[in-house]
Design a protein around this nucleic acid. Sequence first.
DNA 1: GTAAAAAATTGATTAAGATCAAACGTAAGC
DNA 2: GCTTACGTTTGATCTTAATCAATTTTTTAC
Lengths: 235, 235
Amino acid sequence: MAQKKQPAVLCPQCELNDVCRQYEKDDALRAAGESLGDVTPQNNVAKGVSVCQAENRFEYLYAVHEGAFKSVVTLPGGEERVTGFHFAGEIIGAEGVSTGKYGRTVVALQDGQVCYFPETAFSADENDNSKIRQGLLMAMSHQVKNEQWTGLMAAHRAEQRVALFLFMISKRFEFHGFSSDEFRLPMSRDDIASYLGLAVETVSRSFQKLKGAGMIQVSGRNVILEDRDALQGFS
Amino acid sequence: MAQKKQPAVLCPQCELNDVCRQYEKDDALRAAGESLGDVTPQNNVAKGVSVCQAENRFEYLYAVHEGAFKSVVTLPGGEERVTGFHFAGEIIGAEGVSTGKYGRTVVALQDGQVCYFPETAFSADENDNSKIRQGLLMAMSHQVKNEQWTGLMAAHRAEQRVALFLFMISKRFEFHGFSSDEFRLPMSRDDIASYLGLAVETVSRSFQKLKGAGMIQVSGRNVILEDRDALQGFS
DNA sequence: GTAAAAAATTGATTAAGATCAAACGTAAGC
DNA sequence: GCTTACGTTTGATCTTAATCAATTTTTTAC
């Protein structure tokens, strides 16, 4: 069966738009770009394939054009934990700019597409790439905000975490111009459980409780937010 | 009694060093700087005073020169939650660059000092501030990494969270050149509990268990890490 | 389209952490 | 220096979520 496609971000809405569009349109910047390496738009990544590996040398910053991705880290004890999600219009590998290596392994949840931005584009060289850096700053700041959401997931009660999770997803979809009150979750219950630090069974039961309370409709991965404000107030 | 001072970051070690030092030394950049507004170094902030308020318009990005700060968010339900800490050499307000407003209220845990970087320094104007932006990119990327740490705090077990918390603190102190295996925690048990999503009593008990296991020594806020690797492996 | 595999839900029991309550230690104020 | 207030630790009970186990649903493969 055909994999249902996740929404793709329109290039004009992408925070890194300037970098890509200028590259394609502006010959001067394109020339400068050549010396920086390529900014390659829209490369396919098949479901389950990783974009980058934790601890590997940072070579590219990525932007999600289409699809959904998860960040995974392997803890010293061997346990794997999902630490975040990346949707269309968001960046992957931001921590690498300062550390020089990827901090997370990032895996495609469905077939998708990512754009590449070479490390040289934001290293301390003498080229003036202020346009590029401006776009990167925006994307980076946005990423900080997303990571801050994640921090809130350490809420006390399980239902609160799940409610907050759905609210966050909704807000992020909305920001990038996708449906914010009715969507299909790209990740498994296992991924959600790992991300929230809960058992799968607890996640499942929390979904049912939120459903029972009339806040959401759920059928497998399909979710409709009946009352997003209530969801937020509850979390 | 005199408040025990938190270590101050030496300006040459600050990721925003270029911005400040160039400002002070390089006349050309200084001239450019004037048109951007001031980069004001080392302003005092008294214990309990807030650097910025959530939802307020983003005017300055801050860098911690000395002291320790906590980020606080008020949830819709009214509950206050600590979402992060900021130590010497780290930035405050990174999310504001993209959102235009502060996402967290940031409060001084002790008397400290912060440096100001005006919003105009990284807005999309025609001035070439690539040096400034380079420094900001680094600091921002670093902030992403710190926020990613926070995300991991949704660990399953309470002792793991506390162990991971201490490990994180240690790593961050080490990065900025401070003592990494023996330090005084600048935040209360309440703050830690809120940050980790645990009850104060559970935090206290976790400390005692880690002590009993020989991983740490604790006396109030004074902590010695006996075996940091074990702490990491455990978390 | 059907079979097999994986994912998700539901139920019963156990364990972990929250809550309630009180005592102790440290730090601030007089 | 003494008193008071706040922060921290310790104890007992109760609630919540993890675990163990089985079933149902959805997805994948042939």
